[in-house]
Design a protein around this nucleic acid. Structure first.
Lengths: 339, 339
DNA sequence: CTGAAAGCGCTTACAG
DNA sequence: CTGAAAGCGCTTACAG
C-alpha cells in the first residue's frame, strides 16, 4: 500500500473533478460522459498505471467482492478441487477468495470466521460444518450470506452443496453384492459430520435393500476422516468381524488406512478382502491395488457453492437450498468376487 | 456487509468520543485511558457483538494485513502443504491469505495480480514464477513486497524459498549409482522453470561426479510438470535410450507418468527400470511400487515464505534473499539393483 | 486522560 | 454532461 495514484491525481491531470474520473473509470457510468472527456481520462489513467483502491471503494459501496472460505484441512485431497471450482466461479464474477485453514477446533474456527467478517467478506463458504454446528447459528445471527460445502447442515438452516450419500453407498454395496459378497463391513466416518452419518445410514439401507442385515460388529467408526484413523478402525473391524469378505469405507483416506491394516494382518486385497472407497480423490487410481470408489465431482461442488453464494449475496435467492450432486461408481482392481 | 455496529454506536452508548473508543479497543493504546473508561467501553463492545470494519481501518492505516498468493494449479499436490505453511505462519501474525489460482497463462496471471493489488494486499507470494518472469518486473515496479516460492527467479531480483535441487539430484543419482546403475535417464521439467533447469543441471553434474557422461538421448524434456506430460516424455525416452536401467524424474507427477509409460511398454519397475522421483508428494508411498523420491518439506517452504514476506512488509529486511531448503532421499521400492 | 478534527480514496445522490 | 459535497468507518496527530 504505497503511494499510488488516486482519482484526485487523475482529476488534476485531466482538469476535471474527481467524481468525473470515477464515472469515466466505471464502465456502468461511462456512457453518461462526453465521449471525449471519458477517453481522455481513461488514457491518463492508463498512462499513470492507475490501480483503484478497492478498500476505499468497498467502504463506500459496502461490497467487498471478497468471499471467505473456511477449510478444516487443505492437505486433505478433496479440498483442492473444491477450492479450484470455487475460485474459478468466483473469479468469473470478479470475486476473490480469502482462504483460511481453520483445523477441526471450533474455537479456532470461530476466531478465523471473526477475522474474515472483520475484513468485510460479502459471504462465507464453510467446509468445516458439523451436523448441528453452533458456528452456523453464529453466522446466521451475523446475517452473513453462507453456503456449506461437502458437509451438510442437518437442520437445513443454510444452503449446502453435498453429494447424494445414499446413492453413493447404494452403488458401492450393489457392486459388492453383485460380485457375490454377503458379509460386508463398513468403516464409518465421525458421526458428528453429515458425511459420517449419511454414509453409514446409506450403507445400512443399501444392505437392507438386498435383504442383508449387517451385524453390529460389521461397523467400525473412525475418529477422523484420516488414513491413520482408518487404519485403527480397520484393525478393530478385522479383529471382531473376521468373516467379512469386503469393506466399504466412508472415504478414500479411510480406505487407504484399511490397506495399511490389511498389509499388517497379512491379508491381500482383493484376494482376501475387497475394498470400495468414497470420493475418488486424486491418485487413488495409482495405489496398489487401484481403488474401486465412488466418484464425487468436487470441482463441480465448488462451482455450485460459488454460484449459490453469489445469488445469496445479490439477494437473488433465499438460503436453505440444497444442491445434491449425483456420484458414480468407478470400478478398479480393489474389488473382485469373494474366495 | 450489513448494518453492524460502529465505533460511533459504542461511543454514544458509553458517552465518550469515538476516538476514545478506538483507543480502548486497540490493545496498544488502551493503557493511555483510565482503567474504568477502557473496561466500560470494552464491555459495551462485547455486549453489542462489535466487529470492527477492517476495510476502514486499512484505508486509514494503509495496511491491509492481507497477503496475495498466486498459484499455477492448486490441484498439484505440492501446493496444499505450501499453502498450509503459509496460512499458518500468516495467521500467527493476524494476516490472512487471498488465494488465486491463475493457471499458467501469463496474461491471466497479470490480471489476477492486478486484482490482488487493487485489493491492497500488503505483499505477494508467487508460486508461478518462470525463470525470467516479466511479471516480477511488473511487481517490482509497483513496489509490492514479493516472495517467490518453490520456483526461483534466476535474476535474483527477488526473495525466494526454494529447494536445493543440486543436492536433491545428487542424492537421487548417488543412490542409483550405489545400486549399480550406469545408464540412467532423466525426465526433465519445462526449461522455463528454475526447477526444470536446476534439476537437469543437477542430474548432469551428479552423473559427471561419478565419471558418467549421460548421452543426449538420456534426457527427455516434458512439456509440463504433469502426469500426462511425463508419460509422453517417458515413452520418447524409452524408445530412444532403451539400454537405460534407471530414470530420475524431475518430479513425482512425471514419475507417475513414467509408471504409466512402463506399464504400456510391458516393463516392470523396479525389475526392468528403477525410478526415482522428486518432491515426496502425498500418497506416493501408496502407489505401486511405492516411489523412491527426494523429499522436499513443502510446509516448511510455506512457513519460510510467510516469514520472509512479513519481514519485507515491515521493512525489517531487504529483497533478494534466498532461503534454500535441504531435501532428503526417501528410499522405497521403485529402486533396486539393475538386472 | 479525553475530545474535536481531519483524512485515508473512493462513490453517489443532489444540483445546475 | 459535470461539479461540489457528503460520507463509508476507522485512526491519529493536535490540543487542552
Amino acid at each position: 500500500m504505497t503511494d499510488r495514484f488516486t482519482v484526485q491525481d487523475i482529476a488534476k491531470k485531466a482538469g476535471v473533478h474527481s467524481s468525473t474520473v470515477s464515472r469515466a473509470l466505471n464502465p456502468a457510468t461511462r456512457h453518461r460522459l462526453t465521449e471525449e472527456v471519458a477517453s481522455r481520462i481513461i488514457a491518463i489513467a492508463d498512462e499513470l498505471g492507475y490501480v483503484p483502491n478497492g478498500l476505499a471503494a468497498s467502504l463506500r459501496t459496502r461490497r467487498s467482492e471478497t468471499i471467505g472460505v473456511v477449510l478444516p484441512d487443505i492437505t486433505n485431497p478433496v479440498f483442492p478441487p473444491i477450492l479450484q471450482g470455487l475460485e474459478e466461479a468466483l473469479a468469473a464474477d470478479r470475486y476473490v477468495a480469502m482462504v483460511a485453514n481453520a483445523g477441526a477446533d471450533p474455537e479456532r474456527q470461530r476466531l478465523v470466521i471473526e477475522r474474515l467478517l472483520a475484513r468485510q467478506v460479502d459471504g462465507l463458504v464453510l467446509a468445516t460444518a458439523t451436523r448441528h454446528d453452533p458456528i452456523i447459528d453464529h453466522c446466521l445471527k451475523a446475517k452473513v450470506p453462507l453456503v456449506v460445502v461437502n458437509r451438510g447442515d442437518v437442520d437445513h438452516r443454510v444452503s449446502s452443496v453435498i453429494s447424494d450419500d445414499a446413492r453413493g453407498m447404494r452403488l458401492a454395496v450393489d457392486h459388492l453384492v453383485e460380485l457375490g459378497h454377503l458379509r460386508i463391513g463398513h468403516i464409518a466416518g465421525p458421526q458428528n459430520l453429515s458425511t459420517g452419518t449419511g454414509r453409514l445410514q446409506g450403507f445400512t439401507s443399501a444392505m437392507n435393500g438386498h435383504g442383508l442385515e449387517p451385524p453390529t460388529e460389521a461397523i467400525s467408526i473412525a475418529t477422523a476422516f484420516m488414513r491413520e484413523a482408518g487404519r485403527a478402525a480397520a484393525l478393530a473391524l478385522l479383529d471382531r468381524y473376521s468373516e467379512l469378505t469386503a469393506v466399504v469405507a466412508a472415504n478414500d483416506l479411510l480406505a487407504l488406512g484399511l490397506y495399511d491394516a490389511l498389509r499388517e494382518r497379512g491379508l491381500s486385497c482383493p484376494g482376501d478382502v475387497s475394498v470400495v472407497g468414497h470420493n475418488d480423490m486424486p491418485f487413488v487410481d495409482m495405489v496398489s491395488p487401484p481403488l474401486t470408489t465412488v466418484r464425487i465431482r468436487h470441482r463441480e461442488m465448488g462451482v455450485q457453492a460459488a454460484r449459490l453464494l453469489l445469488q445469496l449475496v445479490r439477494g437473488q435467492a433465499q438460503g436453505g437450498v440444497d444442491v445434491v450432486l449425483k456420484p458414480d461408481l468407478v470400478v478398479r482392481e480393489s474389488s473382485s468376487r469373494p474366495r
